[in-house]
Design a protein around this nucleic acid. Structure first.
Lengths: 211, 211
DNA sequence: TGCTTTCGCTACGCGTCGTAGCGTAACTTC
DNA sequence: GAAGTTACGCTACGACGCGTAGCGAAAGCA
């Protein structure tokens, strides 16, 4: 690969500045939220000149995507023993991430912007969405190995069903927290797991396990 | 009630101006998108003074919510004969709504803003979210009457499961279209309906009805 | 005929944007 | 070590949208 073929001489860009800018962006998101965040303020917080910031990012959208994408590095899916437990784990993990004020205010905003900016959409997909979708693939492979789910017939069907599951699970969590504005508590998570396991009838009448 | 007790004399506000402003807002959303929309431009398009606009709406957020909320007036749920058909109908209807450029760019943006603005969240809930949720209640009541779903035991459980279903269905559609950026086509809708009917196993291995 | 409120218009201070220009710092190559 | 190249900090700038104030005129009530 040739990721850095142009410009191999001269003073290199400061990696410390990159880290400081992204950290300052997250801090500014917490303090000000998306709409009141200004690049001048971020530059001041990071201790760099505003021009330095503009040399590396085209604008607010790209900067915030990169700043928030780092939060998704910690996503993982250890084997919890069953499909239901795996689903519950990943849902709680995603909910905890969305509970952070910097993620809450930024994610929806950049997605909204991406509806009119195809390169931005691609950036979000590469650095955020695909990283989440990987967890679905891992969980589904495990469930197949356990015999909890039938093996997909063909790579195309496998990809389609994975996309569907991803949109349903991630979409439900996002909608619950940001649109309905309610907490992802145990009761809700168990209801969602029941729905995924057995469909609507299972969700409407949950097992009478808890009083 | 006393909705208009203050100010009952003097020149009344022009209802035509209200309609023109909201229509101009939707047109501006189509042309410019959320981020580049300016109130001055909306005022010019509507043929009113900028000050008139500010006398009626506190800012961009509130104006856009009202402008987009009107799109949700046409939502309805005729009896399609079965739970699956009702779900498919409402999903397609919501997807068609989200396909409009003015809705696409505005809905996510105002939801993002609402994470740091509680009154705005309440306005969104009253004028948009609750209007969607009503369809879920209608569809569930019909399914119960048909015997497709067990009757909810207690009003609290009924409300909880309705909220869950709403977040799953609406969240899935929104996530599919705006985050994954893919179309809500027949294949996807049928997969979602299968998942809601029978859970993940049904979604992974769809009925071999189509070649 | 007054009284009250809204309307269109103009003008303003404020803050952010994104860029240009400069001198300096850091690193590579010869 | 010297020359060349690129990044950096700093300052300054025009452009633009924001949200408000003040005015005279218009439209409806008493």
């Amino acid at each position: 690969m040739a990721p850095r073929s142009p410009a191999r001489t001269g003073r290199p860009r400061s990696a410390a500045a990159d880290a400081a800018i992204l950290e300052a962006t997250r801090a500014a998101l917490v303090d000000l939220g998306w709409s009141k965040l200004t690049l001048g303020d971020v530059a001041t917080r990071a201790g760099v000149a505003k021009t330095t910031l503009y040399r590396r990012w085209a604008g607010k959208n790209e900067l915030v995507v990169d700043a928030v994408a780092a939060l998704f590095d910690e996503l993982e899916l250890p084997d919890r023993g069953s499909l239901a437990a795996d689903v519950e784990y990943v849902v709680r993990q995603f909910a905890a991430l969305l509970d952070r004020p910097e993620a809450k205010t930024a994610l929806m905003a950049v997605v909204a912007e991406s509806t009119r900016d195809e390169p931005l959409r691609a950036r979000i997909r590469d650095s955020i969405v695909d990283r989440q979708k990987r967890l679905v693939l891992v969980g589904r492979a495990r469930a197949e190995a356990r015999g909890e789910l039938p093996r997909a017939q063909g790579a195309q069907d496998a990809a389609r069903s994975a996309d569907l599951i991803f949109d349903v699970v991630a979409g439900a969590v996002v909608h619950r927290m940001l649109v309905s504005g309610q907490a992802v508590d145990s009761q809700w998570v168990h209801g969602l797991v029941a729905l995924l396991a057995g469909g609507l009838p299972s969700a409407v009448s949950p097992l009478p396990s808890d009083a």
